[in-house]
């Protein structure tokens, strides 16, 4: 196989560090967004399900707001908005915050659905043996809700990974922007976009596999 300038392999090898850097940024920004969104989403899901009604209303408004907004607008708004208030946040973190804020709404709404789908008899049985409210939630409702919330949660994770491409719009050099910068040098448009696409597919398939593994871990919960 020839490794001359102009061949895909040569160009890919030349650009390997740039691309790997991009992939690293994609992975870390996804990771931080997922962690933040999961923690905040769990909390907000409990608020949506059980909290005192004014709090619940607030959470509901937040969720509906986030679900009616394009992520890109959210990212741009966060980025320019923070900059305007002279809050010095690098684009990377502005993007992570916006993505997490968006995904929080999805995690919360999914959790609420999962909690609601646990049969009412479970709560009653938990009451009947004298468990108090936090214990009923923690030992009886949450384990069952987790199983139901897992598939949509994996989906949200995949959306986040794909959503990190939008950070390129505010100048974060993640995998897509890194690929574009490589393309700008060698004009191998199809090759490098296709390669980026393949990398996203591999990442997403891996996450889906991990998700399936986790789901199997919880598959003993049946009715």
């Amino acid at each position: 196989m020839t490794l001359e300038p102009g061949t895909f392999l040569f160009e890919a090898w030349t650009a390997r560090f740039a691309l790997m850097n991009g992939l690293w940024v994609t992975m870390t920004s996804s990771f931080f967004s997922i962690v933040l969104a999961t923690l905040a989403g769990l909390l907000m899901g409990v608020v949506l399900s059980y909290a005192w009604w004014p709090l619940r209303l607030l959470a509901r408004a937040y969720v509906d707001f986030m679900r009616g907004m394009p992520v890109l607008v959210l990212i741009l708004f966060t980025y320019y908005g923070l900059a305007m208030f002279r809050i010095n946040v690098p684009p990377y973190w502005a993007g992570v915050i916006a993505l997490a804020a968006f995904a929080t709404a999805h995690v919360a709404e999914n959790l609420r659905g999962a909690v609601q789908s646990v049969p009412a008899g479970q709560m009653e049985a938990a009451k009947a043996i004298g468990l108090n409210f936090p214990k009923r939630i923690w030992y009886v409702i949450v384990p069952q809700a987790v199983r139901r919330v897992l598939p949509p949660w994996v989906n949200t994770c995949l959306e986040i990974v794909k959503g990190t491409t939008l950070l390129s719009v505010i100048g974060v050099v993640e995998l897509l922007l890194a690929s574009q910068q490589v393309i700008a040098r060698n004009y191998m448009v199809i090759d490098f976009y296709l390669m980026a696409a393949m990398i996203y597919i591999v990442v997403n398939f891996s996450i889906a596999q991990l998700g399936a593994l986790l789901e199997r871990r919880f598959s003993y919960i049946r009715y």
Partner: peptide
């Protein structure tokens, strides 16, 4: 209320065993 419930046991029509 929880303490009072603990002094009374209840068995339900639909069992309501915890599936997990």
């Amino acid at each position: 209320v929880s303490a009072q419930r603990a002094r009374i046991g209840m068995v339900f029509q639909s069992f309501n065993l915890f599936p997990h």
